[in-house]
Nucleic acid binder design. Sequence first.
DNA 1: GTCTATACGGCGATAGAC
DNA 2: GTCTATCGCCGTATAGAC
Lengths: 202, 202
Amino acid sequence: MAISTEEKIRDAAKRIFLEKGFGSTTTRDIAESADTNIALVNYYFHSKERLFQEIFQDSFAETFAPATRILNDDLPLEAKIYKFVDYMTDLLKKDPLLPVFVLSEMRGENTKMCEMASKMQEAGPNKFLQQLEREAEKGNIRRVDFDQVEVSLMSMVVFPFISMNVLKLKKQMSTEEFYRFVEERKKAIPEMILSYLRCREE
Amino acid sequence: MAISTEEKIRDAAKRIFLEKGFGSTTTRDIAESADTNIALVNYYFHSKERLFQEIFQDSFAETFAPATRILNDDLPLEAKIYKFVDYMTDLLKKDPLLPVFVLSEMRGENTKMCEMASKMQEAGPNKFLQQLEREAEKGNIRRVDFDQVEVSLMSMVVFPFISMNVLKLKKQMSTEEFYRFVEERKKAIPEMILSYLRCREE
DNA sequence: GTCTATACGGCGATAGAC
DNA sequence: GTCTATCGCCGTATAGAC
């Protein structure tokens, strides 16, 4: 059996919203791209706004939930870092527009999207930071600002996808070369983080 | 003497485009925010599209030109990295929406903006990569993939600003705390890069 | 240069037949 | 569930008076 009309609309909406953002996307685009008409978009999703909210929530969760989950896993530090970079890179290779979509809709004073995002935040302690603390106590790593380390880790994985087109321009990369480049980061990023945590004070 | 109407419009346009992007910004917003009317916006800039192109070009140059310039300076490696992080952080503290604006308008298959950006690219050799090569030959640093290092450096500086609102949510930061956080990165980021370049093989 | 008034199209949304 | 037709609004852009 083929996919339902509702699914076709959702898929088309996700593709176009991620590509162009809320403001530059029209209901007509979505309907046409889903091989249907505007009336059905509103029949299933009531309004462009509500359809967008569904897509945004999914995308936000899809991006951040797995990251949080892996960092909260019970894995040795080094293995965890490798797994994090590996998993996130594969995720973003499948859906490279995810982060720039989510973050561009959350920019500035956009209270609406930020509130929505904050409702999806699971609280709980940050086990990754706790783990780094413990390793420092055991003397396995240096004691540095671990919040900075966590943000740097995330930055190095996600930013290349956000700046993909600029990167391809500056480094004269094809799409295939870009994907090879981020593949190589699966080694480079953990090495970078670990050398910072392990090397002697300068 | 007060600033000209043209300047008022340009300033308002920049503020609103950076906050909401091209698609979610209306000429009415801009006119009202500049204390004038739509007719004058089109009188000075001919159309919303052309006004946007001016703002985008400025913003693109404002973000990437200084970065390229510093990396091409004639400075010792360590001093250059510190200067880069320092200067870029100060720049983005003044204009935190710059990178997410530029990169969100360049996402996906948006050929228009990418072509515009490519026309603004100065070619020339990448002196930063050459410098890293030379340092490796002299045995001062390890020989690793220096493209990866350059991208990581840029990522760690820029990404916190792109993800500012998510970061503030996850780490429960106020705006002041966020600015203190990126200020501390002026030390943390260079240390991270340098420890990777200098530490022994693992 | 600046304003008012207006043209014109495209937008989101819905009514109503099937 | 699906479609056609249409409404009303808001978007950009311009004409024309001052």
